[in-house]
Amino acid sequence: MKTTPEHDERMAKMTFASVFPHYVTKVEKKGRTKEELHEVIHWLCGFDDSEIQKLIASKVTFEAFFQQASLNPNANLIKGLICGYRVEELENPLTQKVRYLDKLVDELAKGKKMEKILRKA
């Protein structure tokens, strides 16, 4: 699935710090916790709690965020629609990784069991 170059550029330049509070609000509104959100981020990217805080404090872009990440080898098992895009069909690798994270946060907020969110091969 194609995105526009402008869309991909906007995703790359967006800061993790600007989006993280929205993730927290979204999951907490649905009865989930910030700790569960951190668990999801850790599974996808390999960052622990202190690393997440450092990334927020240093206002890294999503481009830098995913350059520093150790993407889970099972990330390609993340499938489905998010923000009108089918994540498994996105052609831009960075945009796909950002949407992977969005999809996992969405599943957490929708009450999906953690075992299902943290995919196993």
Rank of each mutant, 00 (worst) to 15 (best):
P5D: 09
A12K: 15
L90S: 01
T4K: 01
M114C: 02
P5L: 10
L44E: 07
E63T: 06
F65V: 03
I82M: 04
A12H: 06
D102I: 01
V24P: 00
A64N: 11
Y23V: 00
K26C: 11
F62D: 10
Q53S: 14
L108W: 10
V24G: 05
V60N: 01
N92S: 09
M14N: 11
A75K: 07
Y100F: 12
L104G: 01
R99W: 03
K54C: 02
F20L: 12
T25S: 13
F16L: 11
L81T: 09
V105W: 07
Q67T: 09
G84R: 01
R32N: 10
V27I: 10
K29Y: 04
R86M: 10
E88T: 05
T61S: 15
Y85C: 06
N74D: 13
G80K: 01
N74L: 00
T95C: 10
N72W: 04
T33P: 07
V87K: 03
N92R: 00
K2L: 08
R119W: 03
P73G: 05
Q68G: 15
V19W: 12
S58C: 07
P73Q: 10
E89C: 05
L104W: 02
F65C: 01
Q96T: 07
C45M: 08
A64S: 12
T61F: 06
V105H: 02
V60T: 03
M11P: 08
Q96D: 09
G80M: 02
Y85S: 05
Y100N: 03
H42A: 09
K110F: 12
K13W: 04
T4E: 09
Q67S: 13
K30T: 01
L118A: 10
E36A: 04
E107C: 07
I52D: 11
Y23Q: 10
H7R: 14
G80V: 00
A75C: 06
G31K: 07
V98S: 02
N76R: 13
S58F: 02
F20H: 15
I52M: 06
Q67I: 00
F47M: 00
K26D: 06
I117Y: 08
N74T: 09
W43P: 05
E89L: 12
